[in-house]
């Protein structure tokens, strides 16, 4: 299990390659990447705040739950904080399994939980000022399927 919370950018290709390379006997690797979107067209900075200590604990717990539910080789969760701009990579997850179904489902599960159970908050700074991004009901509802 590889859990990283960092301010620095990451190289998606390098992380995906390194993750795949350290698996053994796994037939499938699934990766998901979250990217900053300029929804209102005028985004200057996307500020991501987190709760040091709890963030790592929460992500570890979510990854452990994924391991308990699916047959997985390994799980990677990498999430950035600090000041990001449109098109910057915010985060990624990677999962490995013998057959693809486990890796696909586990990656979706990780994302659903990470959205509303890991202590991150986003604030958009744009032309018209700054505002905290509100949690979406759909994100909370998505947990119901697991």
């Amino acid at each position: 299990m590889d859990i990283r919370v960092q301010e620095a950018p990451f190289d998606l290709g390098q992380e995906a390659n390194a993750f795949a390379a350290r698996q053994s006997g796994m037939g499938a690797v699934v990766t998901f990447t979250g990217i900053v979107r300029d929804v209102a067209e005028g985004l200057d900075v996307m500020e991501i705040e987190h709760y040091p200590g709890m963030t790592e604990r929460a992500l570890t717990k979510i990854a452990e739950e994924a391991h308990a539910r699916w047959s997985l080789g390994d799980v990677l969760i990498l999430h950035r904080f600090g000041r990001l701009r449109a098109d910057d990579l915010i985060m990624m997850v990677a999962t490995a399994s013998r057959h693809r179904a486990d890796a696909f489902q586990a990656a979706e599960f990780l994302m659903d939980y990470l959205k509303s159970r890991a202590p991150f908050w986003k604030k958009e700074h744009g032309r018209d000022g700054a505002d905290w991004v509100a949690a979406r009901d759909e994100d909370e509802a998505a947990l119901g399927r697991w």
Partner: peptide, 24 residues
């Protein structure tokens, strides 16, 4: 750890308040 507003505080060292989380 996420908790309820009815959670007991005996022996607790740290309590945090925040809006619903928006990770990912």
């Amino acid at each position: 750890e996420l908790a309820d507003f009815d959670a007991p505080l005996a022996g607790v060292r740290e309590v945090a308040f925040f809006p619903p989380m928006t990770g990912g």
